[in-house]
Nucleic acid binder design. Structure first.
Lengths: 215, 215
DNA sequence: GTCCCTTCTTACTTACCAGTAAGATTACTG
DNA sequence: CAGTAATCTTACTGGTAAGTAAGAAGGGAC
């Protein structure tokens, strides 16, 4: 990221908020590509077009910088979910819209996804906890959809525990497909979402009709 | 890990192979609990009941030590799969046996699982590549089972691409459930395996009978 | 008992990088 | 056009942990 220069060749000054976002952009990229430890503050600063003390002035420390990245990207992901979900829709429609939004977001922000999914959980507290909280919210959303579906059919002897396990499996399948999708950039995110709907929802459908797999 | 002492109070010497395994045990534990970077070679050595230069003498460097951990644990995981699979069984039985072995292994070796699933992929090459290779083998196994099932029913227009996506989703669901299971140590691994069989196989069953989810 | 190979330790060097002190420069404000 | 409140830099310090040099000591072979 070359630094903007004015006519006299001197470096242009930018307001704090703009610089902070540039720093976060640079940090997300570095953390995603090199990993938390291998990414040096000097490199982040250089990529942001700024000197190192500026990063410390605005973001505090390497830990706080990483946390700020995680919070920003986690917020975006949750917003993408929330923005697509309409409580009035049927459960499968809610899941469909949420998944589509998710795969679109991941396709457009691979580095963010790597930071959230691969880097943050591996580097202990407080990073892992922050991502775990986000993931818990997503799993709760999935569990709620499954639960709605169960109740609407009156089928079930499923406990909260059972539903939680299913939600974890569903979210894990989504995460894995997100990784798979980054290796197939040609695929439309909506197609990926359809794949997961079929894999997961059809399985649930079978389950909820009392069709159980036995050893 | 206190060092073994003989009657005179002097430290007991052990043959190289035994020490190496102790070092790897200690390293897996440290890497899993503290993370790759936060785990220091001094701590690993102390936990193994040995001084740091011994670790360097036998295992080479921190990178090689981590790689050795990954290779050993990945090998065990693949062996656990291979040992349970009988080609003569029906596809669902093969998957069932493999999943049960997998969840048993994870329940008994949480640290190994954390190293393979959480630490190794986050710290770049050559670690990520080593785990990716193992994961590719597992996904190929899953894809093969799905494919067998498809062919045996003669149902399908599924491409290799489609099958690969399903296999990725299935494996991701398994990984996520493995994490979930470590938070529920009371649950029998076989029960966890049954959960996944129901979630995944019932979904596939529906798919293969031509029952497709549509937006 | 004594030779000698393997196991094992203490005590050090060195490189890297997070974090900072001190001050220069720009541009807004009255 | 001063005064001043931001933005921004160069040049440094210090702590931490990877990696190593040099040699001590157990224990099997004969």
């Amino acid at each position: 990221m070359d630094r903007v220069r004015n006519v006299t060749g001197k470096t242009k000054r930018l307001p704090r908020y703009v610089r902070e976002q540039q720093m976060l952009d640079a940090a997300v990229q570095m953390f995603a590509r090199r990993g938390y430890h291998a990414a040096s503050m000097d490199e982040v600063a250089e990529l942001a077009g700024v000197s190192k003390p500026m990063v410390y002035l605005y973001l505090g420390s390497k830990e706080e910088l990483f946390l700020a990245c995680i919070r920003r990207e986690a917020g975006r992901l949750l917003d993408a979910f929330a923005g697509q979900v309409n409580q009035a829709d049927a459960p499968d429609q809610q899941l469909w819209h949420a998944l589509r939004a998710f795969f679109v977001l991941v396709a457009e922000n691979r580095d963010s996804w790597r930071v959230l999914h691969q880097q943050a959980p591996a580097h202990g507290e407080p990073f892992a906890g922050e991502v775990a909280a986000m993931r818990t919210a997503i799993i709760a959303f999935a569990a709620d959809l499954i639960d709605q579906n169960i109740r609407s059919r009156g089928v079930s002897e499923a406990t909260e525990h059972d539903v939680s396990a299913l939600a974890h499996a569903l979210v894990g399948a989504g995460e894995s497909l997100a990784d798979w999708a980054t290796e197939h950039p040609d695929e439309d995110p909506a197609t990926t979402a359809r794949r997961l709907m079929n894999f997961a929802w059809m399985g649930l459908d079978n389950l909820l009709h009392g069709s159980i797999w036995r050893p």
